[in-house]
Design a protein around this nucleic acid. Structure first.
Length: 359
DNA sequence: AATACGGGGGA
DNA sequence: TCCCCAGTATT
């Protein structure tokens, strides 16, 4: 065992959080936790893990779920392709591996949504095989302590990280070592303003010695943020006590694929309602649109990583039955059934603020 | 090799 | 309000 791993694991044993997926060697639970934790903080993912494991305790149960159910339980976590891939992989495991999780790195890579990081995490944590994980925490810890100055989003920089991670790996306890590395990055060697005075590596940390803690890891790429305007139409129809509204299932190569929102017109700038009405696509999915504009929302902003969405909601109460003429992704839904549908955060927030749709 | 894909937390 | 975070699939 290297001195580094010895110190790291000693720190881990003192500071580790108790988390449900740390009480098990069940590869299903470990896989599920790793998919949830991709791009997601533990505090945010924890309750999702518990709900998933409660609802689908094993890979067979999950494989029988519908995509809509899985997306609905995933709602709010973001990166929804993870949820779709989760279901696809569960079915892969059942169909191709008799429901037994593969314990081989290369086989795990065949599963949708499982890349190098997740494959290494599963084989090391569930099967104690020596594969070093490399995630954002590991990159930060290694680049700071050992002074990797090349940008980590380049081949050169990443090769150095990989070589270092492989060298340092504790091959007797790769699962513990990997978890300790990530926990250390998550709790001690945090992105901004880490508490270096109380760090077990502060006598050997390159970044601390050369005052580079705020500089490392170096990243070369910067994202450009585009701005999009969503003009949503909440179209309702009242039939006795039943209030129905039109939902749109998103299917394009775009954000929120598989999630539901409303019919809308998108533009690159703000547009007045009078202009929207003239748009050729305005309500072109309804036969005989006969409506009353009953409310117009404030402008909502929704910040994503590389786009900023400005949304306004127009409430259109139809005076006659809504008849959908194009069999695209639209459907007429009873508003009491709304909680069956996976909704993007923006939509969910608006509906909650509204305290439900009324016709 | 470059780009797209959500949402939450902290400065 | 803006800035930061970061695995995988696709192109």
């Amino acid at each position: 065992m290297t001195q580094f791993s010895y110190q790291l694991i000693a720190w881990y044993n003192q500071n580790r959080r108790e988390l449900p997926w740390r009480d098990t060697t069940d590869p299903y639970a470990i896989w599920l936790s790793e998919i949830i934790l991709q791009q997601t903080r533990v505090v945010q993912g924890l309750s999702y893990f518990q709900r998933f494991i409660m609802k689908w305790p094993d890979v067979f149960r999950l494989s029988e779920a519908s995509e809509q159910e899985v997306l609905r339980l995933w709602q709010g976590l973001g990166y929804y392709s993870r949820a779709r891939n989760l279901l696809a992989s569960a079915r892969q495991v059942v169909n191709d591996f008799d429901g037994v999780f593969p314990n081989d790195y290369k086989q795990l890579l065949q599963l949708k949504g499982v890349g190098k990081y997740t494959a290494a995490a599963i084989v090391s944590i569930a099967f104690n095989k020596p594969h070093a994980v490399i995630d954002g925490n590991v990159i930060r810890v290694l680049s700071r302590i050992f002074g990797i100055h090349d940008p980590v989003d380049t081949t050169s920089g990443m090769n150095q990280i990989e070589e270092l991670a492989d060298t340092l790996l504790n091959i007797k306890n790769p699962g513990i070592h990997n978890q300790a590395m990530m926990e250390f990055g998550a709790l001690q060697c945090i992105p901004v303003s880490p508490d270096c005075r109380n760090c077990v590596f502060n006598d050997q940390c390159h970044a601390l010695k050369f005052n580079l803690v705020q500089v490392l890891p170096v990243k070369s790429k910067k994202v450009k943020i585009s701005q999009r305007y969503f003009h949503y139409f909440i179209c309702t129809e009242a039939k006795g006590k039943i209030c129905s509204l039109v939902l749109n299932k998103r299917s394009d190569q775009d954000i929120w694929k598989g999630m539901y929102d409303f019919p809308m017109i998108e533009s690159t700038k703000e547009i007045q309602f009078e202009e929207l009405q003239k748009d050729t696509s305005f309500l072109n999915w309804a036969s005989n649109p006969d409506y009353t504009l009953t409310a117009v929302s404030d402008l909502f902003t929704h910040q994503l990583t590389h786009q900023k969405i400005f949304a306004r909601f127009y409430h259109l109460r139809f005076n006659t039955d809504i008849i959908l003429i194009s069999k695209n992704d639209l459907s007429l839904v009873d508003n009491s059934k709304l909680d069956l549908f996976p909704l993007p955060r923006l939509i969910d927030r608006y509906l909650n603020k509204l305290n439900g749709i009324n016709c």
